[in-house]
C-alpha cells in the first residue's frame, strides 16, 4: 500500500475547520469546504481532516460516497453538467449527453485526456422553463439543441481540436 504523505492544508480550510470544530453537524459542512477549495476530496486531505475533527476516515468516506455532490476524482477544468431533471429529460437531455460523449470522446463522469472537460449528470438545476439545460462551470445554457453544443464547447477551447 502506498503511504500517504502529510499535506499542508489550505489556510481557508484550516480557518473553516477552526470555526466549525465545536459546532453540531459540522461533518458535511467541512467536506463542502474541502470540495470548494480543492474541487474534489483528495484522499490525503480526507485523512488530515479525519485527524483534525477526530472522526474515523471510514465515516468520512461513508459520507462522501453517500452524497452525489462529493467527488473522489478531480473533475475537468471545465465541468459540463447536463441536467436530467424531468423537464430536461422529456425535452431531449439524453440526446445532449450522447452528443457530448461523441464530441468529447469520453463517457459520463470521465475527464478528457487533456484534463480540460468532464461530463456529469446533474439533477434538476431548477430552471425547467429553459429545458433542456447544460451548465459549463456553473454557467447555464438553455433551450439547447444538439447542434448548439459544438459552439458552446468551442467557447472553452483555446485551440480547436483536429
Amino acid at each position: 500500500m502506498k503511504t500517504q504523505k502529510d499535506v499542508q492544508l489550505d489556510t481557508r480550510l484550516l480557518d473553516f475547520i477552526e470555526e466549525w470544530k465545536d459546532k453540531k453537524g459540522k461533518e458535511i459542512m467541512i467536506l463542502h469546504k474541502v470540495q470548494e477549495v480543492y474541487g474534489f476530496v483528495p484522499r490525503a486531505v480526507a485523512i488530515e481532516v479525519s485527524r483534525m475533527i477526530d472522526l474515523p476516515l471510514a465515516k468520512i468516506y461513508g459520507i462522501i460516497t453517500f452524497y452525489h455532490i462529493f467527488k473522489l476524482k478531480k473533475p475537468g477544468k471545465f465541468k459540463v453538467s447536463v441536467c436530467m431533471g424531468t423537464a430536461c429529460y422529456l425535452k431531449g437531455g439524453n440526446d445532449l449527453i450522447a452528443e457530448l460523449e461523441s464530441i468529447l470522446g469520453i463517457g459520463v463522469n470521465a475527464v478528457t485526456e487533456d484534463g480540460k472537460f468532464s461530463i456529469e449528470i446533474v439533477r434538476c438545476v431548477g430552471c425547467c422553463g429553459l429545458a433542456p439545460v447544460i451548465l459549463v462551470n456553473g454557467k447555464t445554457y438553455g433551450n439547447l439543441k444538439k447542434g448548439d453544443l459544438p459552439n458552446i464547447l468551442n467557447e472553452y477551447r483555446e485551440e480547436p481540436k483536429n
Binding site: G85, T86, A87, R123, G126, C127, C128
Partner: peptide, 11 residues
Amino acid sequence: DEGDPGAYMDR
C-alpha cells in the same frame, strides 16, 4: 432540500 425533479417553487 428541494430535490423533486421538475419542482422549483421553494427556490
